[in-house]
């Protein structure tokens, strides 16, 4: 195990996790709003601090994590997750409770992830998509629970094919995945209950 994979966990596991949980709660209940998540953890690259904080807060030994190729190929990232989170890392997207994607352009289609069942729709993958920021060229117009009229979200990057997949994800409700976009120090939520108004455009 490489030594630097061991540092950079929550300084205070309880209050750190609580702060992240509060931010996640707001992000997922107010889709489109950006929640700041200042550096609570220091993960090895290419895992970004906000994405790392989200899985450090939510994942544990009972929740398998899927990593996309750049993350999975980093020994330091795998060790960091092993030491600080203790979650098993799986190579099958359909088996993962959480997935962290460092390169959304090359991510597997949403339908490859765990979509839950009609009886237990909660048993689906929560995806954490690493982005560079929220001022991308493509703005999604969102509507649904937690949104007064409409809200806007412009994660960067936002692959065009993902938009179509998000519509399909909304169509199979209550099944489907939930998404958290994570820039280095902020997150935004896109739960399965949210509709995208300008998708086809």
């Amino acid at each position: 195990m490489k030594a630097d994979a061991l540092s950079g966990g929550f300084f205070d596991p309880v209050f750190g996790a609580q702060a992240v949980f509060r931010a996640l709660l707001r992000a997922l209940s107010r889709p489109g709003e950006i929640e700041n998540l200042p550096g609570l953890v220091r993960p090895p690259t290419p895992l970004n601090p906000a994405a790392a904080a989200v899985i450090a807060c939510l994942a544990d030994a009972d929740t398998p994590i899927f990593l996309d190729r750049p993350l999975a190929e980093s020994e330091a990232v795998r060790d960091w997750i092993g030491f600080h989170i203790g979650a098993p890392i799986v190579s099958l997207a359909g088996r993962a409770t959480f997935a962290v994607i460092s390169d959304p352009e090359k991510m597997p289609p949403l339908a490859d992830f765990w979509l839950g069942t009609e009886e237990y729709p909660d048993r689906s993958t929560t995806l954490v998509l690493q982005v560079t920021g929220f001022e991308g060229s493509r703005t999604l117009t969102l509507q649904g629970p937690g949104i007064a009229e409409t809200s806007a979200l412009a994660p960067d990057p936002l692959p065009a094919r993902l938009i179509g997949q998000l519509e399909e994800n909304r169509r199979i409700f209550p099944r489907g995945v939930d998404i958290v976009f994570a820039s280095r120090h902020a997150i935004a939520g896109l739960p399965r209950s949210t509709r995208i108004l300008n998708g086809a455009a």
């Binding site: 061991l6 929550f10 300084f11 205070d12 596991p13 600080h84």
Partner: peptide, 8 residues
């Protein structure tokens, strides 16, 4: 000592 994992 450097703390890697605060006691939990």
């Amino acid at each position: 000592m450097e703390t890697l994992r605060a006691p939990e």
